[in-house]
Structure formats: C-alpha cells, structure tokens
Amino acid sequence: MIGEGIRRLARKGVLGINRRNADYILTHNQRSLYPRVDDKWLTKQLAMQAGMPVPELYAVVEIQHQVRELTEHVRDYSDFVLKPACGAGGDGIVVISGRMRTRYRKANGILIDQSEMQHHVSNILSGMYSLGGHPDRALVEYRVKFNPVFERISYLGVPDVRIIVYRGIPVMSMVRLPTRLSDGKANLHKGAIGAGIDIATGHTLTAVWHNEIITEHPDTGNEVSGIQVPFWEEQLRMAAQCHELTGLGYLGVDLVLDKDKGPLMLEINARPGLNIQIANRAGLVPRLDLVEQHYKALPDIDQRTAFAREHFGSE
C-alpha cells in the first residue's frame, strides 16, 4: 500500500521535501547568498538598486532604544505594516489598518495601544520571530492596498502571488488568499487558500485549503478559479529577474498587487514550500527537468518568460 502510494506520487512528478532540499536547495542555492533573501531589508535594497518596485520603507528599528521613537516614525501614516527583517513563515507581521485616537487598529479589527505595539517591536528585536532566534530588526513599511481583482475572494489581508523560479525560469505559481482562519495572513499553513495560476495565461486554477481541493472561498463564497491575474507578464518578468538579483538557482518570489502601484515584490524565499504542487494539482519534477534541459539556451529574461508561458500552461 505504501509502495503504491509512493509510485503514484512519483508518476505525478511530485517533489518531496528530501529531494527539494538535497537536489535543489543544497545544490543550487549557495549558503553565502542566503542573507540576501533571509534579511528582507537587504532584499529590498537589492531590488531597489535593480529598479524593481517594492513596498516603500518608512523606518527601520534596529535597537531597543529606538522603540520609543516608533510613534514619531509612524505619525504621518494612518496605516502601515510592522515586520521582522529576518522573520520566517510570516510570523511576527502586524498590519495596522487605521487609528482610533491613540490606539492602532489591526487589520483584523482588534485595537492595540502604543505599549502593546512597542512590546511587539521589542519582541521582534529580541529575535523571537527570526530564524535561529538571532537579534533582529523591525521594518515599518507601506501597507499594500490590494487590487480589487482579489477583493471578492480574500478575507481581510493581502493576497499574494508566489512564483517558483528555477534557474531564472518561472516554473509554477499560485495566488495565496487570506481567510478568516488565517487571520488575514497569506500563509497556507495558517489556513490561507492557495489557488494555482496557469503560467501561460495568468488564470487561476483550482484551489487548496488545508490540503483539500475547493472551488469557492470559504468566507466570501465566491468562485476562486478562472480569475485573470492582472499584470501577469510583468509579474513573470519580475520573478525571473529575482534570479539575477539573488544568484539563487531555486527560489520562490512573493509578489503583491497594489491598487495604485501595480505589482510589488514583497520577499524572496530560498526554501519555498511544496504545497504549491497541490494548488496546481501538478508535480514540480517534470517542469524542473525540462528547465534543466533548456536553460543554457535561454540567457535573457524575455526568452525565459516566453519559454515558461509556452511550456508551463495547463493543458
């Protein structure tokens, strides 16, 4: 029975975690390059140098002493996002969507006062959310006003587009839709929905929620598949460009669509998750193998996105 299950997964070309780590991450991602993606501040700086659009940075809190100046920094903004520079899995991110006299309103409607916010920033600095618990920095940045396209199929938070890029070629993608359960966060393990995107056309495919295949958003009840993702070509190009930006061979790019500013690059992940395969109902292995055969003949970004659109659409 177990043998049969393994054979089925292999036939589908599903990439397992051991193989992802051994054959793709350890082989194609040099450890010395990790700080470029693990530190979101550094990623942002690199992207800005390369002219890639990113959410605007308002302030960086580096030491405990500066926590008190936080209110100064955010005085002019009614909404903003607090995040750890080296956070993992979306932990520690707080989205402030508005103000209520001296209090701040979180995206989920809960009000927090100044001291609670400062405590949160202190926690970020002490390394509570960072990989390995190292002391960290807190970033205060622009809160994305998401494109109305996704309004009907997301709850509270900002949906983002994840694109897996292998050797500079986008191979698979999905959009992650926050739900009530995920507390407005776009992380699948927290209960967000993942809907596969057809690389060729930019249409959403079926969606998964907690390893289950669904067709409607559990909170809004609207159909999640068949939606055209705007700026699709631009998003593919941005994702492909991240390969040059970081030097990583296998990576996941997270993009958000802003109402006014278009696609923005949020972060890059050197160890992207595997649930994207469930969202697309397809395995990664055949696509990665195809890239392996052809990548040498595809030096520039136009050729690479064209190759992706040609080969990685759903049939």
Binding site: G5, R8, L9, V14, N211, Q277, I278, R281, A282
Partner: peptide, 9 residues
Amino acid sequence: ELVRFRALS
C-alpha cells in the same frame, strides 16, 4: 508526504 500530497495521488 503520502498523506500531505494525497490530493495529488
């Protein structure tokens, strides 16, 4: 992973 990807197999 047999359980995790059961939707695929």
